[in-house]
Design a protein around this nucleic acid. Sequence first.
DNA 1: TTGGAATGTCAACAAGGCTGACATAAAATC
DNA 2: GATTTTATGTCAGCCTTGTTGACATTCCAA
Lengths: 168, 168
Amino acid sequence: MAENGRTSGNETLLFLTDDQLRKGIEAMFFAYRGFTADPDRILSDKGYGRAHHRAIHFINRTPGTTVNNLLSILGVTKQSLNRVLRTLIEDGLVKSEVGTRDKRERHLYLTATGSELEQELSNAQRDRMRAAFRQTGPEAVAGFRQVLEAMMDSDMRRHFARLKETGV
Amino acid sequence: MAENGRTSGNETLLFLTDDQLRKGIEAMFFAYRGFTADPDRILSDKGYGRAHHRAIHFINRTPGTTVNNLLSILGVTKQSLNRVLRTLIEDGLVKSEVGTRDKRERHLYLTATGSELEQELSNAQRDRMRAAFRQTGPEAVAGFRQVLEAMMDSDMRRHFARLKETGV
DNA sequence: TTGGAATGTCAACAAGGCTGACATAAAATC
DNA sequence: GATTTTATGTCAGCCTTGTTGACATTCCAA
């Protein structure tokens, strides 16, 4: 057994028992399904998938971002991202502009149509998150955010922290 | 704009601004990657994927569960689950027993080998969760769990609640 | 000038979702 | 007893989204 909920100082930490940790794990599993359910529905109507949503979300968040930066945020291969970007560009949701300083780079932006879809997706996702936040209150929300941030890999935490500063 | 962080009663709810909600959304995205990262590494070494992990996890949690029950927890099609179960049974990680009362049903159990893998996976996942819980403290953990539960679809919340009672 | 970085593209493949169709056995119902 | 429904398995085929490997282009930088 890896953990019994007690520290060496004999202080009982009930929230660290295997049982509590398992509940946290299962909560993450079930909640993530809810988290993606609404956008998934909207996307599948339009012939897109979760990968398109992710690309659209982060292009919206950091307009003009390069492909490489997006790759490192999304953690996929360039071939995989490229397939998604190609369809989004073909469909006129994303535009790709050759860099001025460095012409190798492509800077990515949402078009008006792309922004519309982004709004639709993020409204749906925010609605659910808002309901959950409202229902549980600010202290729960603070805890929620703290635990999630502590659970990230350091690379992802870096991206998250950078995005946090870019407020609306 | 869908939300401005104020109620009709003019009470400012800073944690409900679009910006706060967006941070919650991005936190979920990045944290889920961390959440699955360690098991994914272990699984890919053995030629399995996340789908196998999910099956193994819930068979371990409710030994003797039927295929139908597992389907409803996992939210996939029987064809999809069957493919995963078949390989797990062939590889001797899961055993399937015909029901005694209802002989149409198959009851699923982990074998000793299956239990070993389950332990390895859940230890890895718990290690990360434990580190995050320890780092943030019991109040944050309580909030984390509350918000996640509020974010679930009602079907999933039902499953979650049922599993919660089955303590270790 | 040469090396390396950023990007794109082509091909092939795998996991794991999906639908639809069909088979079987057993339970439930009429 | 006959019929219908349920639980499960299986086959075939499709889609999305991930992977690796190979190769071309462009262009910055040493």
